[in-house]
């Protein structure tokens, strides 16, 4: 069953057609890859799903609901969480606090009960902490738990951002280049985590990635994009050997075969 579907979506930035008549459908429980050379429009697709941009044409639905009617802060409450290509964390807060913000869509308390910190607010707070501690264990973040983001190395930040998305207990996880800038070992860890996220947590994943090694090892299906247009969709192997994909990458040097 399809969890997320884009139907003939187009978005223009002035003269640039960043996303050109793209349709895709992500099935529940799968890891779906989005590949393509730089500037292909991959991140723009994510920003469309996050409702940061309004498409010029087409429709986007999640879980059977048309999300184009919703504001960008309402999409997460349906169960969509994401990471950003250029890590967007809350710099002057600790790792723990960052993950706790991920819990925002589960907030049941209101301003008054929070100001007075009623027993109900304390109970809720414990529930949030419990969920966050689970994420910290899963991603091995204990050593950084109370550290400020501002002083953390790049690799750790990437993991914290993944953790913040997981803390929201999403149905669909959008990962924008989860392995970019990571070392070989860190990329390996990321691959294991994505597998666990899919198999054990049952979360559907849509990810953008340049590292074809990672894409082949975790993705069930892949869509290749170039100049905002869909080239082909299929298994990682099919897409990698598709003539149009090979051509799109030739000379662009954007692909790393591992």
């Amino acid at each position: 069953m399809s969890l997320l579907s884009l139907d003939q979506v187009t978005l223009r930035f002035g003269g640039v057609v960043a996303v050109n008549n793209v349709s895709l459908s992500v099935n529940e429980g799968e890891v779906f890859g989005l590949v393509g050379p730089n500037g292909a429009g991959k991140s723009t697709v994510f920003n469309l799903i996050s409702r940061f941009y309004d498409p010029a044409e087409g429709s986007i639905s999640f879980d059977g609901k048309n999300i184009l009617k919703l504001g960008s802060d309402k999409v997460p409450s349906l169960g969509v969480a994401r990471t950003f290509q250029n890590i967007e964390l809350f710099e002057h807060a600790t790792v723990l606090q960052n993950l706790l913000v991920g819990r925002h869509r589960h907030r049941k308390t209101n301003m008054l009960s929070e100001i007075f910190f009623t027993p109900a607010a304390r109970k809720e707070e414990r529930r949030h902490r419990e969920a966050v501690e689970e994420v910290i264990d899963f991603l091995d973040l204990q050593p950084y738990r109370d550290k400020m983001i501002a002083g953390l190395p790049y690799g750790v930040r990437k993991v914290v951002e993944l953790g913040r998305a997981l803390a929201s207990e999403p149905k669909l996880l959008l990962l924008d280049e989860p392995a970019s800038g990571l070392s070989v070992e860190e990329t390996q860890d990321m691959a294991y985590w994505i597998e666990d996220i899919q198999k054990q947590m049952g979360i559907t994943v849509l990810m953008v990635e340049h590292d074809m090694g990672l894409v082949s090892s975790v993705c069930n299906r892949v869509l290749a994009l170039n100049d905002g247009k869909e080239l082909t969709t299929g298994t990682p192997a099919e897409v990698q050997s598709h003539p149009a994909v090979v051509e799109a990458y030739l000379g662009t040097d954007g692909i790393s075969k591992t």
Partner: peptide
């Protein structure tokens, strides 16, 4: 109390990154 509950965390989230605050479901 505000600082140790979701309200206070949404304040600091908006301070540090409006974009990811929204992506976490916080209404600016």
């Amino acid at each position: 109390n505000v600082l140790r509950t979701p309200l206070g965390r949404s304040f600091t989230a908006v301070r540090d990154s409006e974009i990811s605050a929204q992506a976490m479901g916080i209404n600016l």
